[in-house]
Design a protein around this nucleic acid. Structure first.
Length: 673
DNA sequence: TGACGCTGAGTTTTT
DNA sequence: CTCAGCGTCA
């Protein structure tokens, strides 16, 4: 059976266009993953491409994983050998790995996550006697510089004001420290390969020869640097397919540039554009609602989603007295719906704008004993125990990582005081060595008491031993032994509020170790080789296998932010808090970024397959006092004829019965417009 | 080093 | 209101 057989004409067109650059505008639920995966299969089976010359790039590990699975179903055995399906960051990481010397890094380099970067920036600010009250802004700026391919000297020469100059200088320091620590941050994973390709044509040539066809998913989410990397890789022939949807661009606030969709037209005049407009997910009314809301935004490429799945049930808009009633209503609705539609809990999703909104609904779900899963809560990696162990791993692989050194030198307690460490740091700087290395130097005796020197030496010796054993013997066994040696469990018990908390945290630690072990074993089974530091790097990139898979199996109501819902679908969707200042959010109204809020609404609506319910509260407790709310403007933008209003005042019963044009007038009346 | 109290913020966060 | 983060004090 051909890989083309189950595709609609537009999808086929997208798959078969292989000679030049292709942009696929894929509306929500239009089968874009099918197009990408089938195109990969098509390139291999019908166009003579070898799998190892194809790369598909996504933004999330989850998407990459799904894509790998689906490609695997289309190809037999070794047909997919060498195929690259990875996130942008993982691809960047691999490029840096392979071009380590040219890129100017030493092996075992560390990857700083957002928290690490933040901490480093903070330290730099403090060292320069600057306030850290604008830390977030500065971090954002630095990230922006990198996304725009600006080096510190670029930033410095472009600075228009003293403030900008100051940020540029901080950026310069920041880069210097990263380099000294033999570390890269998340942005560098894209930036470093991009600059490398620019500066070393021979390296670029090598990679162009390796990746001869490139596919990019969620293209509207690329930033400037990512686009540049794509452009460099595909060269002037433009053998690529990018898939995106400007209406689902909800990460502009984080540097994503949906304009990149337009830019393609200019950069590749022979760009072919294919629109996927048939939606296979939602009923007609849901789709109509989505279309009508998003029609209020400006569009470069017009697009009209349609569905042949029938009209379906009307969309309900329920106004509740308070946020508490709203949460309770959703909980009871779910129980009700579940019985009526014979659905499972996992068929329901409750979506909201801000994480804090989860609290109330969580409470109510607990009250009604409804199982739920809250996604996006405190990340596994922000847990202290994980950061501790990760720091040990980082230091073992990268002696230059002073940040890791400082994090763990006293965890657990090694009786090394602030004074000793300060002296050590001063000495290290003087001698131009890293902190770990400084521990072994002879000059220490003149600076500090012999007990302190002894402790530092022992630590150094111990880490060195671990490094050696990780390289020469079994790294997993070494790490397990290390954790026991540390008596980390005792430390956790000492530093936890309850024994059960300590146990939970220890379980996290073992989970981390197991993940690394599994990752290595899994790679081995597939015949790949995954070194220990590869595995650790992938952990930093949040490529944690199995974890989600296990949890998704459970029959739980899905609770998440609208942002987190992108790419998912559910038979029954509740979007709560449809109020001005919440959705759209106050800050977005002020910042005049309503269009992005509208896209967020659009994403939310298009998650629903069959039932969509929008709720709002008449009163909401904000900063300690009850505030009257007004319904979101997005409600007015919906097709009023298809809505079933409830709770909008005394006329609501009539309204429900005689839906139609009167509803608009009725609603507006009620809202005093 | 830990506990306590003050202050200020309070969207979204794929990697 | 509620919680994190910080500084102070014992």
């Amino acid at each position: 059976m051909s890989v083309l057989s189950q595709l609609n004409p537009r999808q086929k067109e997208a798959v078969k266009h292989i000679d030049g650059p292709l942009l696929v505008l894929a509306g929500a639920g239009s089968g874009k993953t099918s197009v990408i995966t089938r195109k990969i299969a098509y390139l291999i089976q019908s166009c003579g491409y070898s799998a190892r010359h194809i790369a598909a790039v996504t933004f999330t590990n989850k998407a990459a994983k799904e894509m790998k699975e689906r490609v695997g179903q289309l190809l037999q055995g070794d047909q997919s050998r060498g195929l690259i399906v990875s996130t942008f960051h993982n691809l960047g990481l691999n490029i840096i790995r392979k071009e380590l010397k040219t890129a100017g890094y030493k092996s075992g380099f560390s990857i700083f996550d957002g928290t690490d970067s933040r901490a480093l920036l903070k330290e730099i600010l403090h060292k320069n006697d600057l306030d850290d009250d604008q830390l977030d802004l500065i971090q954002q700026q630095v990230s922006q510089f990198k996304n725009d391919l600006k080096t510190p000297s670029d930033a410095l020469s472009m600075a228009q004001s003293e403030g900008e100059q100051r940020i540029a200088i901080i950026y310069e320091h920041y880069q210097k420290y990263l380099k000294a620590y033999n570390a890269v941050d998340f942005d560098d994973l894209i930036l470093v390969p991009t600059l490398l390709f620019r500066q070393h044509p021979e390296v670029l040539e090598k990679w162009r020869n390796r990746i001869r066809y490139l596919l990019v998913d969620e293209y509207q989410d690329t930033n400037g640097c990512q686009y540049e990397l794509v452009k460099l890789l595909v060269g002037k022939f433009g053998r690529f397919t990018v898939v995106g949807d400007d209406d689902q661009s909800i990460y502009a606030w984080r540097g994503a540039r949906p304009e990149n969709l337009v830019q393609l037209n200019e950069d590749y005049p022979n760009l072919q554009v294919v629109k996927l407009e048939q939606n296979y997910r939602s009923t007609g009314l849901i789709l109509k609602a989505a279309n009508q809301v998003i029609a209020n935004n400006d569009h470069i490429y017009e697009k009209a989603l349609w569905s042949d799945m029938g009209f379906g049930d009307p969309i309900r808009v329920i106004k509740c007295k308070t946020e508490e009633v709203e949460a309770e209503r959703i909980a009871t609705e779910i129980i009700d719906q579940k019985l009526k539609s014979n659905a499972q809990f996992l068929d329901f999703a409750v979506l909201f704008r801000g994480n804090h909104q989860a609290r109330l609904i969580e409470m109510k779900l607990q009250q009604f004993q409804i199982p739920y899963k809250l996604s996006g809560s405190t990340s596994f990696f922000s847990r202290n125990e994980i950061k501790d162990i990760m720091s040990y791993l980082k230091l073992i692989m990268n002696p230059d990582d002073d940040t890791a050194f400082l994090r763990i030198i006293n965890v657990p307690r090694r009786q090394l005081g602030a004074q000793t460490l300060e002296k050590l740091a001063g000495y290290a700087q003087e001698r131009g060595v890293n902190l770990l290395g400084a521990c072994a130097e002879m000059g220490l005796e003149t600076l500090m008491p012999p007990q302190a020197v002894d402790k530092l030496r022992r630590f150094h010796h111990w880490i060195e031993g671990l490094t050696r054993r990780c390289a020469e013997e079994d790294p997993i066994a070494t790490i397990k032994e290390m954790i026991n040696d540390l008596d980390y469990e005792a430390w956790l018990h000492q530093n936890s509020n309850t024994p059960s908390q300590a146990e939970r945290r220890m379980k996290n630690v073992w989970y981390l170790v197991d993940s690394i072990e599994k990752m290595i074993n899994q790679a081995e089974e597939k015949g790949d080789e995954l070194s220990f530091d590869d595995a650790v790097a992938r952990l930093v990139l949040r490529d944690l296998l199995e974890r989600q898979a296990e949890e998704e199996e459970l029959d739980q109501v899905q609770l998440m932010t609208l942002h987190a819902s992108k790419g998912l679908e559910f038979p029954h969707v509740y979007i709560m808090g449809l109020e001005e200042d919440l959705l759209p959010h106050r800050n977005s109204i002020d910042a005049d970024t309503i269009e992005e809020e509208r896209r967020l609404m659009y994403v939310g609506i298009t998650r629903a397959k069959r039932h969509l319910t929008l709720t709002l509260a008449g009163k909401r407790r904000q900063y300690g006092e009850d505030q009257e709310t007004s319904p979101s403007r997005f409600i007015e933008e919906l097709p009023q004829d298809d809505l079933q209003y409830e709770g909008f005042g005394q006329a609501s019963v009539e309204q429900q019965k005689e839906r139609g044009s009167a509803a608009i007038a009725g609603l507006k009346n009620m809202m005093n417009i």
